[in-house]
Design a protein around this nucleic acid. Sequence first.
DNA 1: GAGTGGTCTAGACCACCGA
DNA 2: CGGTGGTCTAGACCACTCC
Lengths: 261, 261
Amino acid sequence: MDGATQGGAKAARPLTLYRKVAADLGREISEGAYGSGGRLPAEGELAERYGVSRGTIRQALSVLRANGLVTSRRGTRRVVLRTAHVQSFGELLSFTRWARSMGEEPGGRIVRLDLDRADGTEREQLRLDDGARVCRMLRVRTLSGRPVMVERTVYPEAIGALVAELDADTVSYTVRLEEQGVLFADAQHTLDLVQADKDDAELLGCRPGEPLLRERRRSTDPAGAPIEWSEDRYLPGTVAFTVHSSATSGSLARRPGTPPA
Amino acid sequence: MDGATQGGAKAARPLTLYRKVAADLGREISEGAYGSGGRLPAEGELAERYGVSRGTIRQALSVLRANGLVTSRRGTRRVVLRTAHVQSFGELLSFTRWARSMGEEPGGRIVRLDLDRADGTEREQLRLDDGARVCRMLRVRTLSGRPVMVERTVYPEAIGALVAELDADTVSYTVRLEEQGVLFADAQHTLDLVQADKDDAELLGCRPGEPLLRERRRSTDPAGAPIEWSEDRYLPGTVAFTVHSSATSGSLARRPGTPPA
DNA sequence: GAGTGGTCTAGACCACCGA
DNA sequence: CGGTGGTCTAGACCACTCC
């Protein structure tokens, strides 16, 4: 188990020096080598230990800082903030990989899959021209057979063509798409609360109007082109989202909500 | 309006070169100078334009990338991902600053404020010793007079002493604490869904059992010492949280949920 | 093949923290 | 005051994208 290439995209990122150092330090931290609240060795010491320059060490440490594992401030050695496992981008985007990382058995069933002209919102989210077509998918996702989430995903036509070719009982479309060269590089998420509509209620086995945790997501490839626009609705108590934010690099924000109709 | 020092912590961060460049480029992007999906100038060109080294330009661009504004990949110029305004860490932590940034009038009322021995969870979250004491605060927060959120915050005794000295009608405790030298550097957030208890219902004017969007937050200072542990519960439709995540530096994760009792 | 961003090095100076 | 991380420079080589 390497930890660096693991838990994520099939397209292996190159094992650069700083990534190896970051993975190594991250493992040490999660194993409690420095304790919670403990102090890391100085940059210079690490540079000597790994036989690399200070710049490379700093690049590695900036990864740990971005993941919320350590602080960093002038004058003092870095302090361990958390010893928890850091979830990879792959585990975040793929329900299947997330489920397996918890030791649960993921499942799913496609309820609807069709090709249609994109409406206004879809064109805007996927940055499509007038008259462009999209592939819409409605799926219910299960953990160990128990339905927990309804997923509505919209793909641009080109991606949708790949999706349509896959077996209907494919477990993870995300993984399959990556295998076909569709790389997920960035995603923008919005989290709020909605009421179950009639479809949701039927698929999840709850009453219409029941509250659900909603995640809307727009994923883009390395070139910045939209790959998918998705809306996931989770039953209460099945999931929680965690985020780290810091004064130097925050990615979390609070926005005005839209009343649930 | 400067943009670089604005919208946040009173403790002004030094205006370093790369911060100035990042602020400048960020402003250009939000003004649409490169369009949505457009390409940024090359690093070398920017280095020449600003009269700094390529390293400094790269540091500035990494800020924009962390904020989800631009992509970056080998071989091509950077692409603009979003032109939206980036919310600062200060706006995220302070309900008051967030409200004002939207043009709403923030308000609040302290319902309870007391000093007590910390229980097990509190000791763990605030990293306190056995027998340590904490300050607990229960507040209802309003937007333009309308109650939208119930906030339960726990402070370590030292911070609590500062809190207790403030006027009961203080609008923003976060801002006041920062003025007293308490700096917020990092925060870990967990988002999920709960049902309103009797207190929530009374304070928010809803029925017990009504669904609420919950944000639990643990904030630490630059040294990594816990400052506050807070649980905020929002009425549906009043707020949404947005996060950016990327393959190279993700801070968002999905966790198993806890059933709402 | 030309242009671009990614990685890595070596060194310099400074601001800050804590003893 | 010594040790630490933050900032900035100058240069090198490489992997990749696109024409």
